[in-house]
């Protein structure tokens, strides 16, 4: 493991526009190659946390550092920093409909690598590899609105895979999937972890956290960090799970 964390959050508090609290006083460190699971009930702030890690939301209080750089609107306005950061960190949204907006699946997969300025030949290669890996080659010429939820999810994953980021932020990757697609996504995530990618997964699925997580953060319904530690230890603590509304 590297000697510096990828993300370092110090006392982060985030409020939405209507001043309701999204996250309160969160501190955490995410290290290269770690598979981190963020557990919490609905509305506890998991998605908000991922958006903060992806430089999409900026906290009103506290500090977020990514790759040693303070992450805020000013730093991400620099095209060089933004390009480097977007290339290294990819976010898979919970709702694939938010992610898939282009006319075809192929265009979707090509979107991110084209945006970061890769050559068309390289983009084509990445699209082929990603569609092959996620078993969606038969879908590449189809429009995203014709796909099932499971297929959309796979396309959303492939859309980030073509970017080949070091860090994968995944928001409820298993939500509303059928067992076969779940197993396919699980295999894919295990493969990413084996390849040394850093995974940050927001979920309320305890079994999934147990299977994949190396480090676990439990968010409470008051949007605060309840506990951090190895998943096995945390998932055996029934009092904690009850407090976090996870069982």
């Amino acid at each position: 493991m590297s000697d510096a964390p990828i993300f370092k959050l110090r006392a982060v508090t985030y409020r939405y526009l209507n001043q309701t609290i999204g996250l309160s006083d969160i501190s955490m460190e995410i290290w290269p190659g770690q598979a981190v699971v963020v557990l919490g009930a609905n509305g506890s702030g998991k998605s908000t946390l991922l958006k903060i890690l992806d430089g999409l939301y900026f906290p009103q209080e506290g500090e977020v550092q990514a790759y040693g750089i303070r992450l805020n609107e000013d730093t991400l306005r620099d095209p060089g920093i933004a390009r480097n950061f977007r290339q290294k960190v990819g976010l898979v949204f919970q709702d694939p409909d938010a992610q898939l907006f282009l006319p075809t699946v192929k265009d979707e997969l090509a979107f991110a690598p084209l945006q970061i300025g890769l050559s068309k030949a390289e983009v084509k290669n990445r699209v082929l590899r990603a569609s092959d890996l996620l078993n969606i080659t038969n879908l590449t010429d189809r429009a995203p609105y014709h796909l099932s939820h499971g297929e959309k999810k796979k396309v959303a994953l492939a859309g980030v895979l073509t970017l080949d980021p070091e860090v994968w932020l995944l928001d409820e990757p298993m939500a509303s999937l059928d067992p076969r697609t779940k197993s396919c996504v699980m295999d894919f995530l295990v493969q990413l972890a084996k390849n040394g990618k850093t995974l940050v997964i927001a979920t309320h699925d305890l079994k999934f956290a147990y299977l994949l997580g190396q480090e676990c953060y439990v968010l409470g319904e008051d949007h605060r960090l309840l506990r951090q530690g190895a998943p096995q230890a945390l998932l055996e603590d029934q009092q904690l799970l009850l407090e976090a509304n996870l069982m």
Binding site: K51, A82, L91, F101, F111, Q115, V160
Partner: peptide, 9 residues
Amino acid sequence: VHLAMLSRG
């Protein structure tokens, strides 16, 4: 959608 676009560069 806008956030997802920003996220992918």
